[in-house]
Amino acid sequence: MGVKSGIQSSLPICIGYIPLAIAYGVLGKSAGLSTYTIVLMSIMVYAGAAQFLSINLFAAGLPGPEIILTTFIINSRHLIMSTSLSRKLSSSVGTLARMMISFGITDESFSVSSIGNDGKKVTPGYLLGVVIPPYLFWVFGSLLGTFFSDFIPQSVENSMGIALYAMFIALLLPSMSKSKEISKVVIITAILHVVFLEFFANGSSGNGWILVLASVTGAFIGTFFFQEDFEDEN
């Protein structure tokens, strides 16, 4: 199980990233971001949800620290994925290889490399094969989107504002349908966010912090109120 097998496993991710990356490039352009900013984010950050959200944050002229903190909060979910995935790699695999592979950990590459090989250890070559092609598709797809924005009709472009939310729904709903606990926490957090916005919203610059507050509070409530249910499930 080497590089070739990894590349084959990455194919559905690559196909999935093409329209998302183009939508990201188009959205970025329509929000007034430069091609430089859009593509550099894909090259350096490489995190779909955070990049989609940061388009709005950049366009709203939010201060840098708030954009960076929001990015960190969104991408801190990679802590869990990275922790989980590292168990699948032999401890003999060196630090340099781990540093390279870990840059490419996304929801999709994590899922493919975790679920596709249940119980078995994976090789560094396989993981590099899984993470490198989607990265290239994401970067070049973003660039393509910045060119296409001039050719796509306004009515279609207007409709693409929903893309980010549709992606979040696609990520969230399968987990909700599998777990009542997650469903409860998600609903509680949504209510908290609406309530917190009602009480604390102070222009667009304050809203990133409210999102963090709602998310952390929701997770705390889930941790302490649903702990026993969670342990029963195990």
Binding site: S76, I80, G161, I162, Y165, L171, M176, L211, G218, T223
Partner: peptide
């Protein structure tokens, strides 16, 4: 571990609501 594992779901939830209601015309 439980707290950290819930964070992605709660962040996604907060990202969707109520923002999605203003995501289109």
């Amino acid at each position: 571990d439980r707290f950290l594992s819930l964070i992605p779901y709660t962040i996604l939830s907060a990202l969707i609501f109520p923002g999605i209601l203003e995501a289109s015309a």
